[in-house]
Design a binder for these strands. Structure first.
Lengths: 382, 382
DNA sequence: GCGCTTGCCGAAACCGGTTTCGGTATTTCC
DNA sequence: GGAAATACCGAAACCGGTTTCGGCAAGCGC
């Protein structure tokens, strides 16, 4: 009694594959022996092991991972749930990241199972679904939040995972992260060395862990250079060009404006060019800008954006490797790696040509009497 | 006799899941009955079916797809092998595309298995590997070539696949594609209606199917408008900004230069702005440009790029749906869909302010006496 | 020569499902 | 009212692997 068919002609048959039974029959061995020979059991003689290996290769035997999975519980797949929001600064790096993860996975004969979510809840729902069905043996969690519901869930369910980024509760967490706080500190010191004494900071996404780290890096930098912290020099989140414009304007409107601005994310930094254009300032001379991420658009600006570039592909590879080791049973505490971003020393920062006072005068002269949000031509929130 | 362990502490145990036996035991039925009840067999009474369904939901029973796969041969996964080359114009759309595929897959309770390749051979190797191990039930093949080795391979192996784009040998192929030839024809007609009589065309990647189609669309457009075809107005492949610059220069250097240029791909079209800048021309007035793809940078140009935008997310969804139907046994010929791009009517095209002769004079006046490749400041091959 | 390891492999259970086959109990048909 | 068809479900095989268990033969000690 067959189920109600929906298709028309039925599925087409595939070519029969070589099973372990075929291989065993060909070798005059039982499949249990073959299985153990291929899986490194010690109770198989070296002679037999070699004979089996050779025959397996010769016959093109490839065990079905899902057939193995039913007994071993492992599907040899790493899970990745991406959130693709409308405007996403990390999107340019997506291909690199996937390439890294996928390359490391293939090298170990694993695969990558991908799902995309459009919201935070969605992300958790998809994650749960993949876990329920054992679609992956473990997960890479990108874009770590300070509080991360995904990590909490996986930790509770005892499912291996690796964070791309750190989190506030490190218990049971493995991770790979870039020490962007070091970069921020480095940037402050570079600017200080060039003569800047008022250095603004524009934050990134408040909920993310990276933001807290970059902010602290900025503060560390001030301390290291002996500069006094000034709350008015720190602006809340700016995540795109338009918000970057607003943040830049706000900083320049201070009584004593900064001569250099450090942005937590590149996309916000791009806004500085538009503001400079409007005010007749030259970036890199009248106003220095350093930022973080290394997006390709940075190279298209004039002058080019000085920023810290992240090797996203390498990050993907490291994460995949760490996750596989985690799944194989290594302790999470032993699986924590920190990388460094590389500074792209380009034209958007330099010795300050103007003092804060001179800068302030220019801003006051060119700005509209206040009133409403500063509108800015040629700005796209993109 | 256990195999040699490589890990340290061994894998952590997961929470036991509800199996079909648990469910059967709880219902006082055999697992065969439960299985058939859940899979729509007709020899199970409606009462029992309902009872089973309810209990399954109540107990949170989720069949393991890889356990099912071992008998059914289906893993409920769609395969996707991406090639991420160094400079890739389609990269901005990758997230959208993946989101579409993944969304449609999840909706049908399927998953997406992803692999990335760095070369053509690599692509085929990975595809073979995924097939060998039955990691996916079928594949989506993006970036269709005129001759497509992947399609040939899958066809021969009798493994379902769907093309994103058409191919020269349609036998056994299902596909989704955008009728970019219609867009090209439409563009020619629009330009003709505005008064343009000399319209250039700059091709895209020669090996890809889309290029042949777009070129033919351009020719169709000329025919429809009663314009004579002129071989010198058609330039070979330009795939990025730098190549777009070269193509634009070459066309403008003609004795009777075109007053409008149609580009097969956006990234090449961006080169026209740089050339116009150098020659003191205004895009959209002195030189009209229309292109195809809808990349975000187009909106950042002044004037904005008139182009045809593709709903990549939707393409991903359609492809996933078609593939699933293909895997379920529908004939490939019944699974062919063509969509349309939408024209973004922006500022880079308009009535010609100059005749070809006037244009030619300007070009001649401003150009360097020949000699070597025309270099161009502020151009990035990005 | 005997008992005890040790090395090596076969037999069979097992994993979590699907599918085939066959056997009741109930209808249906004449 | 009896035979045949039908509805419904259980038993068991099956899918392709892994893992446990046990047994035989050779080697070892004494």
């Amino acid at each position: 009694m067959s189920p109600t068919k929906t298709g028309t002609t039925g599925p087409t048959p595939r070519k029969r594959r070589v099973t372990i039974d075929d291989l065993a029959g060909h070798l005059n061995l039982t499949k249990s022996t073959v299985s153990r020979a291929l899986n490194g059991y010690t109770d198989i003689s070296e002679t037999t092991r070699l004979r089996v290996r050779r025959a397996a290769d010769a016959m093109g035997y490839r065990p079905l991972s899902h057939a193995q999975a039913i007994r071993t519980g492992r599907v040899r797949s790493i899970g990745l749930v991406l959130q693709v929001s409308e405007h996403d600064g990390h999107r340019p790096f997506l291909a690199e990241f996937l390439a890294g993860v996928s390359a490391a996975a293939s090298r170990a004969d694993w695969t990558l199972t991908l799902a995309t979510a459009s919201s935070d809840e969605d992300k958790l729902t998809l994650l749960r679904g993949l876990c329920d069905q054992n679609k992956a043996d473990g997960f890479i969690l990108p874009r770590t939040g300070q509080q991360d519901a995904r990590a909490d869930f996986l930790r509770a369910a005892n499912i291996p995972f690796v964070l791309y980024g750190r989190t506030s509760n490190p218990e049971g967490c493995a991770w790979y992260d870039i020490a962007s706080e070091d970069s921020m500190k480095d940037a402050v010191c570079r600017l200080h060395a060039l003569g800047h004494r008022r250095i603004g900071f524009v934050q990134g996404g408040a909920a993310y862990m990276y933001n807290a780290l970059r902010l602290s890096g900025y503060c560390e930098g001030l301390k290291a250079c002996g500069l006094p912290p000034a709350p008015e020099l720190v602006r809340p989140a700016a995540l795109n060009r338009a918000e970057g414009v607003a943040a830049t304007r706000a900083l320049l409107a201070l009584d004593t404006p900064p001569t250099a601005i450090l942005f937590a994310v590149d996309r916000a930094a791009l806004g500085a060019w538009a503001v400079a254009d409007d005010l007749g300032l030259t970036i890199g001379r009248d106003l220095s800008v350093i930022s973080y991420d290394g997006i390709p658009e940075g190279a298209l600006m004039r002058p080019q954006l000085s920023t810290f570039s992240v090797d996203t592909r390498h990050a993907g590879e490291r994460l995949a490797n760490l996750l596989i080791r985690r799944i194989r049973g290594e302790a999470p505490e032993a699986l924590r790696e920190i990388g460094q971003a590389t500074f792209l020393d380009r034209g958007s920062h330099g010795k300050p040509a103007l003092t804060s006072e001179q800068l302030s005068d220019i801003v006051r002269a060119n700005s509209i009497p206040t009133g409403g949000n500063p509108t800015c031509h040629s700005i796209e929130n993109c």
